[in-house]
Design a protein around this nucleic acid. Structure first.
Lengths: 346, 346
DNA sequence: CTGAAAGCGCTTACAG
DNA sequence: CTGAAAGCGCTTACAG
């Protein structure tokens, strides 16, 4: 900006054509590796293009071809570990195949509300869309259809689009069974869904699975031990305090995410409870901090989910990329036992 | 994808012109709010545009105008809280002013190395660039100059481009002075720079400030108490273990970031040390988890830095946005005392 | 194998 | 205040 203006006129396809003594059509074909170009011509074009630092204008290419080589990635938040990790993996996968990420953070000031996707964001701007754990409204789905954009959903499924996720029920079953197998009977749960977001699948599926396991072992379910939360560590710590301070407190807590589990551990420690002696805590994710904090958890490979979603979308775009055209990918989860769980009163 | 193809032909400016009975030039002017259009004409054009669901093709607009309304945001990582928070704030600010974020995650497989920015990523793809704590090579700078792209740097400054950051030295001085004022004399430091990334300003500035404060109070500096780290909680925990297990361990640790401080706290607890009785720990950031973990820290407003950088860039792009044309913004920091610090042996 | 020409859908002087 | 026309820089049939 205050820097000296060293801006140069960038060369265009016409410059290359003139310099190489061929037509622009031939330059276009040669550079894009299409056939029907003689080896000698192609070589000469490449040489000239390099000399002139020629890079095709994506803007002109897009107008002519109708493709932008850009994928819209739509997230309800960005600052949470799960979403940032997905975006990072998607970006790297797409770039490796010549595509770019246009990012949309739909987080709104108001909790539990989000900005809607609009034609303005997508039309002639992206070739496809990846949603991150984001239920789509009918209007949004209609829009994406109308624009003819392929879509891949990570987490929360979207209509009958390809979907990449973990088995939420299975993950929570692993977590709960782990606590039960240690001998816990008084188990609380953090991460129930507020009724106004009941359309998001993950929280509901995890809660249902928790209940199933409890029931299958004949364990009592205390209504007041099922806690809601906005899925942050802060809120989990806050919401859980009263419960943990009570004399008849639970001996274990299953949290629907590691961030909430970390909040629960902190709340417990602040009350003088020892972990795992006085309270066992388990989460789901294997968050970047879980290892160091000694949190037992059910690990999911988030980056792998981002990678696979990107590959499926690339396939749909006709790009020669690895990965099949799978319509449903369920990524494995695994129990990782660390220091936050033990038999009750141990 | 497997969804029924409801794709519709989207209407173009020609459709609107025909329907409104005016020329495409008039439609263009009317819709963009340029003057020299009669109110009646403008109204009619708007009405028709709405009826036809007309949205100008960004791809055609870009080719004709030379502007893409897209800003490249370049990060060395995405999965760390600081960077994700910046990107989120930038995205929202830009979108509010009709601009979009094209995201580049330059993290490489190899630690301490990163992918280079190339003409391919930027040319006719973005109108400007925001770098997130990213030193630029001479080649990259030359490229950005050549393409005539305005650039705003957050954190690590870039040549003489506008820069938004905190005062790293001041932040670490606040942290260290806090420990000293509590009576600590045996203070270790985590977050020294590997020599191969010594060109990144933040780590060096914080370490220097720590040393200054120690010296100014006549406190001994133990060489083996200055620990390197890759700035993750895991590595901080690992690197700090030996130190904390020694009989002549420090009574306090100043970490150059909260994530590292969290690692130190975890390592200490794993060794049976109580915080803050046996060890005080302080960080810098006010990470999303710091509050719940009771970490004393020096808070920086990361979102504000993202917002301001975006506003400065918008100004440089000639967009009517708030914020001045400042060339250097230093955002305030403040000490936040929580439960991880106390007088030694308290 | 190669080129001339139309076309993608806008914006921008220039005339009037 | 409005329109005709050139131009942005490519890709894509179509001829040859």
């Amino acid at each position: 900006m205050s820097a000296p203006d060293r801006r140069r006129r960038m060369s265009t396809i016409t410059d290359v054509a003139r310099e190489a003594g061929v037509s622009v059509a031939t330059v276009s074909r040669a550079l894009r590796g299409l056939d029907r170009v003689s080896p000698r011509t192609r070589e000469r074009v490449f040489k000239v293009a390099t000399e002139l630092d020629y890079v095709a204008s994506p803007t002109a290419t897009s107008l002519a071809s109708g493709r932008t080589q850009v994928v819209g990635v739509v997230a309800p938040f960005l600052t949470r570990w799960f979403f940032a990790t997905l975006v990072s993996a998607i970006e790297k996968t797409l770039r490796r195949h010549g595509h770019h990420v246009l990012l949309f953070d739909l987080e709104d000031e108001a909790y539990d509300r989000r900005l809607p996707l609009s034609q303005n964001m997508l039309w002639k701007r992206v070739d496809g869309v990846i949603t991150l754990n984001l239920p789509m409204t009918d209007e949004e789905l209609e829009l994406v259809d109308r624009l003819g954009l392929p879509l891949v959903a990570i987490g929360t499924p979207v209509a009958d689009r390809p979907n990449v996720r973990i088995d939420d029920a299975h993950a929570m079953r692993l977590a709960t069974e782990h606590l039960v197998s240690l001998g816990h009977e008084r188990i609380a749960y953090v991460g129930a869904v507020p009724s106004n977001v009941a359309h998001i699948q993950t929280p509901q599926a995890r809660l249902d699975a928790f209940r199933d396991v409890m029931r299958s072992h004949g364990l009592a379910e205390h209504k007041q031990w099922i806690l809601g939360s906005d899925w942050t560590a802060d809120s989990a710590a806050h919401d859980t305090r009263t419960l943990l301070a009570a004399p008849d407190r639970p001996t274990a807590v299953a949290a629907a995410s590691d961030e909430m589990a970390i909040g629960v551990m902190a709340a417990a420690r602040a009350l003088g409870l020892r972990i795992p002696e006085d309270l066992s805590v388990i989460g789901i994710d294997d968050h970047a901090l879980s290892n160091v904090l000694g949190l037992t958890t059910v690990r999911q490979d988030v980056a792998a989910q981002g990678r696979q979603a990107a590959e499926i979308l690339l396939q749909a775009l006709g790009v020669d990329a690895p990965g099949g055209t799978a319509t449903e990918v369920v990524v494995d989860t695994e129990l990782v036992v660390r220091r936050s769980t033990a038999p009750p009163g141990s």
